[in-house]
Design a protein around this nucleic acid. Structure first.
Lengths: 216, 216
DNA sequence: TCTTTTCTCCCGGTTTCCCGGTAGACGCCG
DNA sequence: CGGCGTCTACCGGGAAACCGGGAGAAAAGA
């Protein structure tokens, strides 16, 4: 059994000690550091080198939303398991887009916590089933009425087509030919996609598109 | 309830009529065309415009493996549900890599078939649970013993690191700096990844890596 | 020991992507 | 009608990716 090093950040010391107590019986999981603020975490991460981070969203200094972005940049290999009491599907998708590997509600039973940590550590993901389902429902509704821009950024029909072709490894030139539009137009759509999905390049585009269900 | 247009290709006419009979009670599913060969399918696809394609792998003229590649190129929006009697995990991963959205064994109960079609049509996927599990086990074994190159192309440690950074939207220059290696080395790894995963560019790299579980 | 693989570094050249604009045509809706 | 959004098209320039090689050192296996 491989040991899993974790770090915890949560603004309530009580919750932290609760988590530590829950995790203590599971010897394969080692808590390397606990923090009550984003600043403290960023300091401690350097020496802790955890595999998994339990992250609360509501923190005193920086929001977990911004924090996860910073962390993912600095430690791409670190898996982030969001552990929060915010049960909004929109928050799930938001955090997923920022690269978390799991989303768990506080109050989940301890064995679920263990399962989630192990899943996340093993390269999988664990999303609170209820929220996952709601997210999916939102997505369905979005598909039926493209007006309800709740979760997924609203892409136009043309943009979706271009996105599919990008994912199919076509170049902009080829996409243009295939859709009978100018090269410039195809490039426009491509740029708009990158803007709308808030990514930096094709790699991010594909990754995010898959994460939010625009691609399979 | 949205209607789902499907096409079927299978070398046995009996299976086709069986499928049609199974699907008839489900009025939301409309069979637009049935074919017993790849050539026939490619002809008929033009006018059928189905949403979902039920695809057998063993066909008289072309293997389903090659066929799916062709189809995905020509109709990126078309969802392919593989329906076969080949219960090899390696075939599942192979077809997934080529862009199918589902993998079902012949002999699955009819409600499973319906579920799969609807899942696939709705942007999801449906993989025969048993095979999915086996695939996952293979993957685990692969992780423990990097020697068993059964399903997933064997990536070196360094390549995995580079892959993760590519997915994190870093440029080659940034990856090189981050790993303390030369720009050329980072680019080598990038090129090797593209070769090993048999893709054409970064878009394909990310997509395939996610599909086969190298990225989340 | 010999071979294979991995990781490293290098080069020149081509293609593609990314950015930040501008701008006209069309349709929809208040 | 006037505004908004989409789709279309265009431009220039810079950055990045892609290709196809060569090549050496070190580690791991056969």
């Amino acid at each position: 059994m491989q040991t899993i090093n974790i770090a915890i950040v949560d603004d309530h010391p009580l919750i932290i000690s609760g988590l530590v107590a829950i995790l203590r019986p599971y010897t394969q999981i080692v808590v390397r550091g606990t923090y009550t603020s984003a600043a403290g975490l960023l300091e401690g991460l350097k020496k802790d080198c955890p595999d998994v981070l339990l992250l609360d969203i509501l923190l005193p200094d920086v929001s977990g939303k911004e924090l996860i972005t910073t962390i993912r940049e600095a430690y791409p290999a670190l898996r982030v398991l969001v552990l929060t009491s915010l049960d909004m599907p929109s928050m799930v998708s938001s955090m997923l887009r920022r690269g978390c590997s799991g989303y768990l509600l506080k109050g989940a039973p301890s064995n679920t916590l263990i399962d989630a940590i192990e899943a996340v550590h093993g390269g999988g993901e664990y999303i609170e089933p209820k929220l996952k389902e709601q997210l999916f429902q939102n997505f369905l509704r979005f598909k039926e009425h493209p007006r309800n821009q709740i979760v997924v950024p609203e892409l136009t029909q043309r943009e979706k087509e271009v996105l599919a072709l990008i994912a199919a490894e076509y170049t902009t030139r080829e996409i243009a030919d295939k859709l009978f539009i100018s090269y410039y137009t195809a490039e426009n759509h491509r740029n708009n996609l990158i803007q709308k999905l808030d990514v930096k390049n094709t790699a991010g585009l594909i990754k995010v598109a898959i994460q939010i269900g625009l691609l399979s």
